[in-house]
């Protein structure tokens, strides 16, 4: 597979997941502001923005959040920009992604482009993005061969899921004084229903965190996502001729370490330093991204033609 195409597929996975998770996060944030009568809108919004890596928005309210995380095509963190990224990556690898998948991506983009989402009620817009991402993911799953390229897409998707879930949990940790914070966090991860059914309703904040971090059955938990990313990487290493001793890739090592720390570390300790732990997970994701990029995308025979030098 061409390195450039592999990279595009990897990023389709990341961007699609990012668009979906951002839409969940936004929707939940809006609900929290409505449901909790004593919430401090400015403080909550600021937490959310900071967790998403946006600093310096002066006295943000929900409009600012909607703008920066929702509609703004120029803001790197908005769901529209994320989807645009997925669409551009798909356009670059158009002969590789299946025809139906491309059409699903492109149709969705036509629904979003030119600020069209802004004219839809915010909840409806978030739902639309979430559903369209599911459509694209579903079509990809059933119409593309699950070959090397697919694994790159899965890797991207799972990595992004780890990153986004850790951000969602981090923001919950900062908002823990609100009684609704963890319920909303579960909702943001699409886990509320699953959590209630698993813990039979009688549940605490710690259990909510445990569920999101460590549940082995729930597909969006950090542990499952880390494991899935590892699986994708392992099968990629196998296709490129893995070694018998140890692991070849820095990426796989980083992922494994992060997973082991979660899986075998004590929950109390994790909970005690939750925000810090979550930032560390995000740094791991970024390190894995760079390692994969070095190893698979730029590695082979990078040479540069310099204009005019003969």
């Amino acid at each position: 597979m061409l390195s450039r195409i592999a990279e595009s597929l990897f990023w389709i996975g990341r961007y699609l997941e990012r668009a979906e998770d951002t839409s969940r996060l936004l929707e939940v944030h809006l609900t929290l502001l409505l449901e909790d009568p004593v919430v401090d809108e400015e403080a909550t919004s600021e937490v959310l923005l900071r967790v998403m890596g946006i600093d310096g928005a002066a006295s943000p309210d929900h409009q600012t959040v909607l703008q920066l995380l929702g509609w703004d095509e120029t803001s790197l963190t908005s769901m529209v920009a994320a989807f645009y990224g997925a669409r551009e990556s798909a356009r670059r690898s158009r002969e590789t992604v299946s025809l139906e998948m491309w059409e699903a991506v492109n149709t969705t983009w036509n629904m979003m482009r030119g600020n069209r989402l802004q004219h839809v009620p915010a909840h409806r817009a978030c739902q639309l993005v979430r559903e369209r991402c599911a459509v694209v993911g579903g079509i990809a799953d059933t119409t593309m061969t699950h070959d090397e390229g697919w694994q790159y897409m899965m890797l991207g998707r799972q990595l992004e899921r780890v990153d986004m879930t850790s951000r969602i949990i981090e923001s919950a940790a900062y908002n823990a004084d609100s009684p609704y914070a963890w319920t909303q966090t579960l909702r943001a991860c699409g886990a509320h229903h699953a959590f209630i059914r698993t813990y039979r309703g009688a549940a605490t904040d710690a259990q909510a965190a445990e569920f999101l971090l460590l549940d082995r059955m729930f597909p969006r938990s950090v542990l499952v996502s880390l494991q899935a990313a590892e699986d994708a990487l392992a099968s990629l290493e196998a296709t490129t001729g893995g070694r018998r001793v140890g692991l070849t890739g820095e990426a796989l090592r980083a992922l494994g370490r992060a997973r082991a720390e979660l899986e075998f570390g004590s929950l109390e300790e994790t909970m005690a330093h939750l925000p810090e732990r979550m930032s560390r997970l995000q740094r791991t994701c970024s390190a894995v991204n760079d390692a994969v990029s070095d190893h698979y995308f730029d590695g082979a025979g990078a040479s540069v033609w310099r204009a005019g030098v003969r």
Binding site: M1, L2, S3, R4, I5, A6, R94, E95, T96, E148, L236, T240, Y296, F297, A300, G301, A302, S303
Partner: peptide, 20 residues
């Protein structure tokens, strides 16, 4: 495969493409 110029390199009079 749909390649761009930067996907191709020449080595010893042969054209190669950069793959994973």
């Amino acid at each position: 495969r749909l390649v761009e110029g930067r996907d191709l390199v020449t080595q010893g009079g042969r054209v190669m493409m950069r793959t994973t």
